[in-house]
Amino acid sequence: MECDACRSKLLEYLDGDLTGPAQGELEAHLTQCPGCREELQGIQDTLSLIARMPAPEPPEAFWQQYLRELRQKVAAPSWPARLQQWLAGFTRRPIPALAVGIALVLVVFLTWNTLTVQPPAPPVASLDLTEQLALSQDLDLLQEMDLLESLELLEDWDVIESRDIPDRQRAA
């Protein structure tokens, strides 16, 4: 057996995958070749060192906290998961989802329009004659009501009195 062929099979040999005549041939070569024996030893050392690579050994308290956190995560899925589910719903049922989306946009648009746009006041010309006459008879009363509405402070009472006196004189 050549050294190259031997070295290409050393890992298989260490794994125990080499059996029968192939194993015998390799072992025969190893007994005669110090270079390949050294290579075999080197691979064994490497594997042994890899196996010794350290990893933390967290205490029991760490694992208890670990499990508690997991239970919470299971009970309350994170927002990306919920968002993902929501988006997945769109891709699974695109047409109903689109219809719902359009309906929502329309509802919002119409509600906004209803709340913000006031109905225009009817033009005076559009009132019929009976309504115009009734309004003209109550014109004084309506003017007084406007005045009362504009009163916000007690000091304005003088204004009323000054207006009230000539009216009484006129009535007398």
Binding site: P54, A55, P56, E57, P58, P59
Partner: peptide
């Protein structure tokens, strides 16, 4: 990150 106090 092998500064683990519990490591061998």
């Amino acid at each position: 990150n092998y500064a683990d106090p519990s490591a061998r």
